[in-house]
Design a binder for these strands. Structure first.
Lengths: 156, 156
DNA sequence: ATCCTTGCAAAAAATTTGCAGTTAG
DNA sequence: CTAACTGCAAATTTTTTGCAAGGAT
């Protein structure tokens, strides 16, 4: 939870921006966490060690990093965005009922990344694939309004 | 463009919910639009023909539909979520600088969908793949590495 | 009638921003 | 030094909610 290797941070630091203690602390925290944190969670954690870092600074920093592709942003509708320090490929399934969020290993998403880049001419920094659906537990326990809704359109 | 074929709406309508004029109008509007609209945009459009439908109702309805997989929700961090009536596969690229959002045709995402389902045991209703990066125009106009100022970049 | 649904408006949540003081380079 | 950055707090933006009235079955 303390500082990671400063060199590590420095090498990924976007050029043209000052490497302030706040920014280092924030990036460091996100990387330590390993998972996907909301801005609020990040703020909480940051405050444990750096109570003086303000909310505004955290948001500004998060946006700056996300725009530069240093971190990824996984926004959810119901909740706050989640930020992830691992920009390597890793996708998620998200249960629309209980909100569970877990990782999945989807090789073909990597391909998709490439195709999207080719097709759009974008310089793609990361892709966010969030598979939304109903997890096994929820399916078992409630069966979503008692029956199969017209899911036909959804599946391929 | 007022109502689409009522039968069309009816067949996708989640069971256990009343098919009220408001809900029909909202789903209809989303489908007419064809694109990805924010809640605010949907509310605007809805109000043109149904000024009395309230904001709360639109959000409640949007959430209900999204939870049932009737529409998809594509949340963005900086901005509002966008809702899409087309639950079939279609992915997007999103420019983190100018905010442009356009469709891409990514066959392998279909595969990913399947893999994610297998791996997680989820019943996946839809997947949201948003490729974030920098569009060709933005790359050309600011060159993103070297002298960009970032913080003042256009927001949508 | 009964219960789902709506409209309204206030509230909560999430994120952004102006400004004056601070600091990295 | 000096432009970039921060903290603070107020302002926005986005979304949710409580409640009484309305409407479908």
């Amino acid at each position: 939870m303390t500082n990671a290797d400063p060199t590590e941070i420095a090498k990924d630091f976007p050029e043209g921006f000052r490497m302030t203690p706040q920014r280092v602390a924030i990036l460091d925290e996100i990387r330590q966490a390993g998972g996907h944190l909301t801005a609020a969670e990040i703020i909480d954690r940051i405050h444990e060690q750096h109570p003086s870092i303000s909310v505004g600074t955290v948001y500004r920093t998060l946006n700056m990093f996300a725009e530069r592709g240093v971190i990824l942003e996984f926004p959810f509708g119901n909740q706050a965005s989640r930020f992830d320090g691992r920009t390597e490929r890793h996708d998620h399934v998200h249960c629309t009922i209980c909100g569970e969020l877990r990782d999945v290993e989807v090789p073909s998403a990597l391909l998709a990344h490439q195709v999207a880049e080719d097709q759009s001419g974008y310089e793609i920094q990361g892709h966010q694939t969030i598979f939304s659906g109903i997890c096994p537990k929820c399916r078992r326990s409630q069966g979503v309004s008692g029956d199969e809704k017209g899911a036909s359109a959804t599946r391929d």
